[in-house]
């Protein structure tokens, strides 16, 4: 892996997936993985495969649902979409993240 890429922080992958689904609508696994890579500007060391256990975890919690559909290239693929519960979860998680990020930022900015 490239030296300037950072590992995905534990738990943040879920948030990324939820956010992706919120902004893009129903999407298949490859699409989600590509979208995360693009948004992060290729700074993340993401094995695309790790997205699948995450998707299963979110589905088990009832935050997202999946159904089989056809991809843009006419290939059978499983499409994931956000459920109401997931939308609510996304809001809480976002607020949480913002708080943590702000705290961390305060910590790390050199004090004058």
């Amino acid at each position: 892996m490239g030296e300037n890429k950072s590992d995905v922080l534990q738990g943040t992958l879920d948030l990324m997936v939820l956010k992706t689904l919120e902004s893009m609508g129903p999407l298949h696994g490859y699409g989600i993985a590509r979208r995360i890579e693009q948004v992060s500007g290729n700074t993340l060391a993401l094995n695309q495969g790790t997205i699948y256990p995450a998707l299963l975890r979110l589905e088990q919690r009832g935050w997202i649902k999946s159904e089989w559909g056809t991809s843009e290239t006419n290939r059978r693929a499983k499409f994931y979409s956000l459920r109401r519960l997931g939308r609510k979860q996304l809001e809480t998680e976002t607020r949480n993240w913002e708080r943590i990020a702000a705290t961390m930022a305060r910590f790390l900015t050199p004090s004058e």
């Binding site: 298949h28 490859y30 695309q48 495969g49 991809s71 290239t73 290939r75 059978r76 693929a77 499983k78």
Partner: peptide, 12 residues
């Protein structure tokens, strides 16, 4: 699962 993962790699 096999089908989904195969589909993923094909798309890539």
């Amino acid at each position: 699962l096999d089908e989904e993962l195969r589909g993923h790699i094909e798309l890539a």
